[in-house]
């Protein structure tokens, strides 16, 4: 089994997000990048599939600050091949990047043919589309998103579970090769001891791949008028005081609403 995981780094929302003076981007000084959460899940799902079916996991990560950490951690978790992809513009919007990634996967030696490409179902800065269906469309492969489980990976098909509203799930069968947008892995991404990551830093090798010429510009066809913090249209009335005081106020409130 040949599994490819596409991972991206996105701004870490634990840090304060401030808008740059131009009003059209985030202030990069304050930014710290973190692997996109659902990409971490995509990696975990790939590793679980490798444990179940054997094969190789290739992690392709878009170049970003601290991306080496992401890749070495992936190696420590069990990824076999690490590729840092340069020359793909990241940031707001993913369409240009996803299409460039698809082309890079085709041109980089040995990435394809693959059975599955897994990536996160969506990321927090995907203003102009979703990575998984774009990859699929460019490669001409079938796609399904919001996947939370792979039930079976056979020679020519894969059976996956997708989440629907109200706690319902749907089991789909797809022909291989396919692209999966992973919402959550079957179990939370594993912890890897730092000692293993440090060992990976010495033993594992990160290949650097250069993306071919982009076929689209970032946010092509879209004018970004401005970025801003959302107006609290109808912000909550805030209650202050020590817990006991606030509890008392809330009780009054609930009683007034006939809830007590």
């Amino acid at each position: 089994m040949n599994l490819v995981v596409l991972m991206r780094m996105v701004p870490d929302v634990v840090e304060e997000l401030e808008i740059a003076p131009d009003g059209k981007s985030l202030d990069r000084d304050l930014l710290r990048m973190i692997p996109s959460e659902s990409d971490d899940h995509a990696l975990e799902e790939a590793l679980l599939l490798k444990e179940r079916y054997g094969g190789r996991v290739t992690v392709l990560a878009l170049s970003a600050p601290e991306v080496a950490d992401l890749l070495y951690t992936a190696a420590a978790k069990g990824a076999d091949r690490l590729i840092e992809l340069r020359g793909v513009q990241t940031g707001l919007g993913v369409r240009a990047a996803a299409l460039a990634c698809a082309d890079a996967m085709t041109s980089l030696a040995g990435v394809l043919p693959a059975d599955l490409i897994l990536t996160g179902a969506q990321a927090i800065e995907d203003l102009d589309g979703l990575a998984a269906p774009l990859l699929a469309d460019r490669l001409g492969w079938p796609y399904l998103g919001v996947v939370t489980k792979v039930n079976e990976l056979a020679d020519r098909t894969v059976t996956v579970v997708k989440e629907f509203p109200g706690g319902f799930r749907g089991e789909f069968q797809m022909t291989l090769p396919a692209v999966l947008g992973i919402q959550a892995a079957e179990r939370p991404p594993r912890y890897v001891p730092v000692a293993k990551v440090r060992a990976a830093m010495k033993a594992a090798k990160i290949e650097v791949g250069q993306a071919p010429e982009p076929i689209a510009a970032p946010l092509a066809g879209i004018d970004l008028v401005e970025l801003c913090k959302p107006e609290a249209a109808g912000r909550a009335e805030m209650l202050e005081g020590a817990p006991e005081e606030v509890a008392g106020k809330l009780c009054e409130l609930l009683a007034a609403h006939g809830l007590l």
């Binding site: 369409r95 102009d128 979703l130 269906p133 774009l134 469309d137 998103g145 919001v146």
Partner: peptide, 21 residues
């Protein structure tokens, strides 16, 4: 969840801008 991917694929195939979120 039900429609995830439809908008993106449609925009791409029409070579049209797709605005998410």
């Amino acid at each position: 969840n039900t429609t995830m991917g439809v908008g993106t694929l449609l925009a791409k195939r029409l070579a049209a801008p797709g605005v998410n979120f």
